[in-house]
C-alpha cells in the first residue's frame, strides 16, 4: 500500500475536517492500494509552511489557504470584492474558469497540483459597539483589527474604519479588552465559535472570501502514485470541493441566525448599498494590487464573474 499524508489547518470538528475524514474513507475503500493519514488542525504547521513542505514532497496533499509568499499573483484569492454573491463564488471556483485556471497554472509553476478550490463563507465585520452608517463608506469613528495585508487594510479603511494590524491569535483578547472596537476577518461561523462573547454586532459585508484549496505535491504525484490512484484522488477531491459553495451558503445563514440567537445583532447591508461599497473598495484597493497580480488578469477575472 502507498501511504499518503494529508495535512489541514481546520479544527477537527469543522466541516472541512469532516470532509477530509470522508475523503480518507473514500480513498481507502476504493481498493486502489491507498492508505491515508490525516493531520488536522495545523499539527504540521501553518498554511504557509505546508505550502513549502508540499513542494518539497514531505506532505502529499494539503487543504489550506494558498499564501502568496512564493508567488505574488496568488494574492488574487485575497482581492476584496472579487465577487459578492454565492453564485459568483460557484462560478469562480469551478474548474475551467479564468480564476481557477490562473490558480492552477501558478501552483503548477511551483510544483503543486491544484485539486479543488473550497469556499468556506464570506467575511464580515464584527464589533463591540454599533457601527454608524453601515450602508455607506462614511467614517465610522471606529478602530478595528485587520490582518496583515495591504489589500485588507486599504479595503477596510475605504469602508470607513480605522485599522490596527493584530494577529489572529491576539484578536480575541484585543476586542475583549477594548484595544480595538471590533475586527474584520471572520466568517459568521468563526465569529460564533470564537468571538461571540466579546462582541455585540456583526455586519455581513461579504468583502472577502474564506477560501482554501486542495493541492497535491507534484513530487509525490509523479513518484509515489500510479495512474489509477491519481485518477481516483483527482475525482474524489474535485467532487468534495464542488460541494463547498452550497455548504457555505447554508452555513453562513445558519450562523448568522445562531449569532442573533446568542444576542449578537446582525446588521445587514442592502444589496444596492453593498454593490456601491464594493465599487468604491475596488476603485481604491485594486490599483494597489495591480503591480503584483497584473492589471489585465484582474480585469479578466472580474469580467468573467460579472457576466450573467
Amino acid at each position: 500500500d502507498t501511504t499518503i499524508r494529508i495535512a489541514g489547518t481546520h479544527a477537527p470538528d469543522q466541516y472541512a475536517s469532516q470532509v477530509l475524514d470522508k475523503i480518507k474513507d473514500r480513498l481507502e475503500q476504493a481498493d486502489v492500494g491507498l492508505k491515508v493519514k490525516v493531520f488536522p488542525a495545523s499539527q504540521l504547521g501553518s498554511g504557509e509552511q505546508l505550502l513549502g513542505d508540499a513542494i518539497r514532497g514531505s506532505i502529499d496533499i494539503v487543504h489550506a489557504y494558498v499564501y502568496s509568499h512564493k508567488d505574488p499573483v496568488l494574492e488574487l484569492s485575497s482581492l476584496p470584492y472579487l465577487f459578492t454573491s454565492y453564485d459568483q463564488m460557484a462560478k469562480a471556483y469551478k474548474p475551467g474558469s479564468v480564476y481557477f485556471d490562473t490558480m492552477e497554472h501558478r501552483l503548477d509553476r511551483m510544483g503543486l497540483k491544484l485539486l479543488g478550490i473550497t469556499g468556506e463563507g464570506f467575511i464580515g465585520v464584527m464589533a463591540s459597539k454599533k457601527p454608524e452608517n453601515i450602508n455607506t463608506t462614511e467614517k465610522k469613528g471606529m478602530n478595528i483589527r485587520v490582518w496583515s495585508s495591504p489589500a485588507a487594510q486599504s479595503a477596510t479603511q475605504t469602508m470607513g474604519y480605522n485599522t490596527t494590524t493584530i494577529d489572529w491569535g491576539d484578536a480575541f483578547a484585543a476586542i475583549q479588552q477594548r484595544v480595538v472596537d471590533g475586527m474584520i476577518g471572520a466568517t459568521p461561523e468563526a465569529t460564533y465559535a470564537t468571538f461571540k462573547e466579546a462582541i455585540k454586532y456583526y455586519v455581513p459585508y461579504n468583502a472577502f472570501v474564506e477560501s482554501t484549496s486542495y493541492y497535491a505535491s507534484e513530487k509525490s504525484w509523479n513518484k509515489k502514485l500510479n495512474q489509477e490512484q491519481r485518477d481516483l484522488i483527482k475525482k474524489v477531491f474535485a467532487e468534495e470541493a464542488a460541494k463547498f459553495v452550497d455548504w457555505s451558503r447554508q452555513n453562513d445563514a445558519k450562523y448568522l441566525a445562531e449569532l442573533e440567537k446568542f444576542g449578537v445583532e446582525v446588521l445587514p447591508v442592502a444589496e444596492g448599498d453593498l454593490n456601491n461599497i464594493a465599487e468604491e473598495v475596488r476603485d481604491t484597493t485594486w490599483p494597489l494590487m495591480e503591480e503584483r497580480i497584473g492589471k489585465d488578469l484582474m480585469a479578466k477575472v472580474r469580467a468573467e464573474l460579472s457576466q450573467n
Partner: peptide
C-alpha cells in the same frame, strides 16, 4: 491570559473565556 488556552479553544471550538 494564556497562550495555550487560546490554541485549545481554537482547536476544539470552545469559548476562549
Amino acid at each position: 491570559p494564556s497562550s495555550i488556552q487560546i490554541i485549545y479553544a481554537w482547536v476544539t471550538r470552545q469559548s476562549v473565556l
